[in-house]
Design a protein around this nucleic acid. Structure first.
Lengths: 246, 246
DNA sequence: CCAAAATGTCTATTGATATAGACAACTATA
DNA sequence: TATAGTTGTCTATATCAATAGACATTTTGG
């Protein structure tokens, strides 16, 4: 990202310090400052963005609060972490395999589970009658202990009884499917949209206000083409990018 | 979208009126108010969001400025337009066909074109030597006269001479390729990220500050697998969603 | 050790943001 | 034609956001 000539905008409802924080966060994520491991001095940033040094300090304070940078008096503002995981989407999309060796620790936490009746929308997606019993899982996925996505997934209850326990034990949809008798499945379709993070995103994905969330709506099916899972996932846009290989 | 229980957040650098404007815009885009064709009364919105009526008025004024709503004294605040195009991504991704009959008028404007040498990144993507001659096109795509995306596309210059003129005349990459001797091509890969709109986005895509932009980086190849085009496109996240069919 | 470079802290001032209340103006409907 | 419902306008006040300047504190390097 080229910071030059891209001035921030005033009086549009987004505080200058937040615009600048967002820009610096993106610059860090795209490796802008990898050579030094530090953000440029406050006075330099202030000149680049055409604002007062105090405004830059507010932005850096916000990033420090997020744990992205740490200011050290006399030395500069050090970059603590900067990552953007690449998440391949294909017919064989799997979360844990997709992340691959981009992260050492991969976790899948079961936040909640329930059984419920299929709404019209869910029934259509899963090719089931309206009112069919579904297992619903709320999950949170982490890479290197950093929250990456939270998801709501639905499965036909009659076919995949025990899915919740299997996921809780393994932390993996693929493994849980195998446990309940489905050795393989394929991704049929994926819809992707982007929205501003809501309050639930802010807490569960540990985001800061104004952050962007990538929302995917994915349908998985067995090898006969019968739908086995419909999932709505929310990813921190700063943490991931998607790659579609055709 | 459920507006209930999703209060806005204070003192986070994003003005309340802008958060509310973004939320109402999304609600309109997802068809929340299709039954009435109107936004709820200001006093109702104020109660929903837990803010003063004047704050809601600021939000609605911003949306009116964007041409999304129009307030009429005594009647209410009418919705003028609300759309979200679905954009399928597959091996046969084409912009104009993808939009299909979701829009009546489809335009592709050539904003600028030039010939330049391949950088290391571009050369790697297009499998050419560094410094190879490339044709660069800056395009703006519209659906029903509304800007949907702006894109920068690179083509090997030796193979596709005349691409710029062909695109200017046809407004279509597919048609331009056919003109310069490539009857068919396939999408090899697509990367998708989301960022906040920059100043260029604001003007060319006619967005309001704080809006979200979906960025795709796409590689197309001929039937022998030789790369023919690499393109970086920026879509208004309020205007489109992507669907990947595997 | 000294000076340069960098972050930390304080005061003061201005304009934008948000709340609060009151009332005017307009529309639709009973 | 009232009347309820809705948007438009005005005044006033408190807080946040941004600028400006001065100086302290810490680290780095000559």
């Amino acid at each position: 990202m080229d910071m030059q000539g891209a001035a921030v905008r005033r009086q549009n409802g987004v505080a200058l310090w937040r615009q600048i924080a967002d820009r610096i966060r993106s610059a860090i994520a795209s490796g802008e400052y990898d050579d030094t491991g530090k953000v440029p001095p406050e006075i330099v940033l202030a000149a680049q963005f055409g604002v007062n040094r105090h405004t830059v300090r507010s932005a850096l304070a916000a990033l420090a609060q997020e744990g992205i940078v740490q200011a050290v008096q006399g030395r500069g503002t050090l970059i603590l972490r900067k990552e953007r995981l690449n998440f391949p989407i294909s017919r064989r999309t799997r979360f844990n395999q997709g992340i691959g060796d981009q992260a050492r620790e991969k976790e899948g936490l079961l936040l909640a589970s329930s059984e419920e009746a299929a709404t019209a929308d869910l029934a259509a997606r899963l090719q089931l009658p309206v009112g069919a019993r579904l297992i619903r899982l709320e999950t949170l996925r982490k890479a290197d202990r950093r929250p990456v996505s939270r998801a709501t997934a639905w499965f036909p209850a009659d076919r995949f009884a025990g899915m919740a326990d299997a996921y809780r034990d393994s932390g993996s949809i693929t493994a849980a499917f195998a446990t309940v008798g489905l050795p393989d499945y394929v991704r049929v379709s994926t819809e992707i949209t982007a929205i501003h993070a809501d309050n639930d995103d802010l807490s569960s994905l540990e985001l800061s206000p104004g952050a962007i969330v990538l929302v995917t709506r994915a349908l998985n099916a067995d090898q006969d083409g019968r739908p086995v899972q419909y999932a709505v996932s929310r990813f921190s846009a700063d943490a991931v990018q998607f790659t579609i290989e055709n």
